[in-house]
Amino acid sequence: MEIDENKDYIYDAHELDVHEGQIIEKLKANSQKSIPDPDGWLDEDIKRNIVLTSLDWVIDWARRSSLWPVACFPACCAIEMMAVEGPRFDLSRFGMEILRASPRQADLMITAGTLTWKMAPNVQRIYNQMPDPKWVIAMGTCGISGGIFRSGYNVVPGYNKIIPVDVYIPGCPPRPEAVIYGIQMLQKKIAKSKAVPDLNELPNPLKKGKK
């Protein structure tokens, strides 16, 4: 919002609402296509033919063993997510018991619930606030495709319309075992990622114009 000198900014709810509406409409218009999954490593590891150094291995090990999920709990899947956190399924066995309320301290987003267009800008913003590297798990059919609400007028058909998703866990809601399995899949995926970039791919400040 532009700041107008002559205006009293204490409470103009209408303006806030109109502004929010514009953001939603814009996002809606811009996200009609699905964003492709960041990497297809999970199945096609041979194709990419990555050489992992031992430094890579150490970094990947550290990353995958202490994933901290951000709280993104819009709907019913959140109940199962809490159960996963809870005493019986005990996610802390995988080094990730702490749900971070702040996206800046998290590197994993488990999207537990239906996403509506009104919510979409906020989720996108939370995703953008997370520091790299970051991963997203779409939990539940709503997260994958909109689920039974897909034909609703306010429902985003899948989180991958607005943010890239790494792992999908089907189910409505998925059982906690499925969620843990999905997290393990993500850990496998991280283990294969190349954490240390190649030297010649790094930007070289000495050579102008060249990468």
């Binding site: 109109v18 929010e20 009104k118 306010n154």
Partner: peptide, 14 residues
């Protein structure tokens, strides 16, 4: 009296 569930600028009344 303003919209409660949908956003300002939503087209029509579903």
């Amino acid at each position: 009296l303003k919209r409660i569930f949908l956003w300002e600028g939503f087209d029509g009344h579903p």
